[in-house]
Amino acid sequence: MKSLVSSKPDQQKEWSSMLRILTTRLARIAAIAIMPVALSLSAFAADAPLRIAADPVPHTEILAFVQKLAPDFQFKIVELSQGVNPNELLASGDVDANYFQHVPYLRSQEQALGQKFAVAATVHIEPLGVYSRKHKSFDAVPDGASVAVPNNATNLSRALYLLQAQGLIKLKAGFDAPDKQAATPQDIADNPKHLKILEIEAAQLPRSLDDVDLAVINGNYALEAGLSPAKDSLGLEKADGNPYANVLVTTPKLADDPRIARLSKLLTSPEVAKFIREHYQGSVIPVNN
């Protein structure tokens, strides 16, 4: 009896040891079984098509050319409609990148949304232009004329600098660098024609042309409305030194993603630059020649 009783602790230790070994082996088997699934999911994420939010013109058109240029590179273009904020889509993870904006606007969006974004590529410039259906030249613009300008802070400032460059207004001293000093109508120091500045949503500016004397319109909205910035504008922004180049934007998390890297390389390629020059005839200007 003593030997049987004394053997119970030994048996318990042996069973405990065997249980630990069995548990360890089962855990290893489970890990090995799960590993290929995890690896395949990771590979799927890396190979999944990028989702890129873009304005219809010219951004979607440029991306469509990239798809023809590299048919093996799969990505999905999410064409934007009015009222949708592409930066909110990017911040929420509904898209992986967007292509519609310039850096000054992006920085203002970062502040407004409390988000950080990453610029992946600098692609093209859409010169801001002054248009009119009532007047053939700035000399013909009457006293008290109405001028429609974009109502968002960045492009409003940009429009005022363009009006200054055309000799229509003069801003206060020190307002000579649009990327460094933002301007508002309160910063107009001299307005010889007593122009009435009307702030309107940028996308609606082409529709305002029949109702105002002048309208300062973003290049993409002008193109969508059938206007040719290079031919139809009374005055156009200069491309040299222009800080408003349009960029491909993503999140810091995806900044080093190989899919983003490949798209960036394609968008800044000589082939895309040639397409932009030939297709838009100066209304859209490639940054990389």
Rank of each mutant, 00 (worst) to 15 (best):
residue 2 K to N: 12
residue 4 L to M: 05
residue 7 S to N: 11
residue 13 K to S: 11
residue 18 M to C: 07
residue 20 R to Q: 14
residue 20 R to T: 15
residue 21 I to A: 14
residue 29 I to S: 13
residue 30 A to Q: 09
residue 31 A to D: 08
residue 32 I to R: 04
residue 32 I to P: 06
residue 33 A to G: 12
residue 35 M to N: 11
residue 37 V to E: 06
residue 41 L to A: 14
residue 48 A to T: 13
residue 48 A to D: 09
residue 49 P to N: 03
residue 49 P to K: 07
residue 53 A to C: 09
residue 60 T to N: 03
residue 63 L to V: 01
residue 67 Q to E: 14
residue 69 L to T: 00
residue 74 Q to S: 15
residue 76 K to P: 00
residue 78 V to W: 02
residue 82 Q to Y: 06
residue 84 V to M: 08
residue 88 E to M: 06
residue 90 L to Q: 08
residue 93 G to Y: 01
residue 94 D to M: 15
residue 96 D to H: 10
residue 112 A to M: 14
residue 116 K to D: 12
residue 116 K to R: 09
residue 117 F to Y: 13
residue 130 V to P: 01
residue 132 S to H: 05
residue 133 R to N: 06
residue 135 H to Y: 09
residue 140 A to C: 03
residue 147 V to R: 00
residue 148 A to C: 13
residue 151 N to V: 09
residue 154 T to D: 03
residue 158 R to I: 02
residue 164 Q to W: 01
residue 166 Q to I: 12
residue 169 I to A: 01
residue 173 A to W: 05
residue 174 G to M: 09
residue 179 D to Y: 10
residue 179 D to H: 02
residue 180 K to G: 10
residue 188 I to M: 06
residue 188 I to H: 07
residue 190 D to L: 12
residue 193 K to F: 06
residue 195 L to W: 00
residue 200 I to V: 15
residue 201 E to T: 07
residue 201 E to F: 01
residue 206 P to Q: 13
residue 207 R to I: 05
residue 209 L to H: 04
residue 216 V to M: 07
residue 218 N to K: 11
residue 222 A to S: 03
residue 230 A to S: 13
residue 232 D to Y: 07
residue 233 S to T: 09
residue 235 G to Y: 02
residue 241 G to H: 12
residue 243 P to R: 04
residue 244 Y to A: 10
residue 247 V to L: 03
residue 250 T to V: 03
residue 252 P to C: 11
residue 258 P to C: 07
residue 258 P to K: 05
residue 264 S to A: 12
residue 267 L to A: 06
residue 269 S to H: 07
residue 272 V to D: 04
residue 274 K to Y: 09
residue 275 F to V: 08
residue 286 P to S: 00
residue 286 P to E: 03
